[in-house]
Design a protein around this nucleic acid. Structure first.
Lengths: 119, 119
DNA sequence: TGTAAATATTGACATGTGTCTATGTCCGTG
DNA sequence: CACGGACATAGACACATGTCAATATTTACA
């Protein structure tokens, strides 16, 4: 957290468009970030995240998600677990149902790292 | 759209897409984007990308990169190939040396997809 | 209490991935 | 032309990952 880099040479300024590109990332930092990207780097999980976020109240129960894929229930459950474990999805149980919700801060932190700008 | 999206590289796909959270991403779209994230989802490749971008002129030759890691030369070559194949690194050979350069648009497109904002 | 529904966990399997050593290819130089 | 250096490719191997069927767990309700 919190690396402030005040003085930039012209070259550095040009290079600057994302924290990743501003300066060499540390080995430990890379090890910490990679699992987040790895969790996202699957088509099913990308769709799951997007589906949950697009759902009413930005949350969805597993029953809704299962129907959206041609995959077994345990497989969906597995993917949700992966996203939850890296902190991209919040999980709350209400009765028999389990609801997942996107942790937008986590996602946008990743986006910022890569240098994106919201349209 | 939907005229013909057959021949889009992963990079092109990301470049034109709305943020992941605004609407459910399509299955085909997810399949094209995931490889980009997968290429990034490795600590060594994250550092490679960052190192290349931080280098003078935003490009680096393999000889420089090899020294920065405690890995064999073929392993580094492999990772660079992965990053190159998804369009995150440009490659140019000059004499005996090969120089890699970050394709910043590709990265920032990904960032935008995830909803990040440059600080 | 017993049964059914919603999720999670387990175990198995095929496939993918990161790494290495060994070898190949391309290029400059003597 | 031959040699050496820079980088890529091939093959091998251990380990991780995505998927499923089977089973367990939790909860509501008759």
């Amino acid at each position: 957290m919190s690396m402030s880099l005040p003085l930039l040479t012209p070259t550095e300024t040009v290079a600057c468009c994302s924290p990743l590109l501003k300066q060499p990332i540390g080995a430990d930092e890379a090890i910490r970030i990679a699992p987040l990207l790895k969790a996202l780097a699957d088509p099913v999980r990308l769709r799951l995240l997007s589906l949950v976020a697009s759902h009413a109240d930005q949350e969805a129960c597993v029953c809704d998600l299962n129907d959206a894929f041609d995959l077994s229930q345990p497989t969906i459950s597995h993917h949700l677990k992966v996203l939850h474990e890296v902190g991209l999805l919040d999980r709350s149980k209400r009765g028999v149902w389990v609801y997942y919700r996107v942790r937008a801060e986590a996602l946008s932190a990743l986006g910022t790292l890569l240098g994106g700008v919201v349209a």
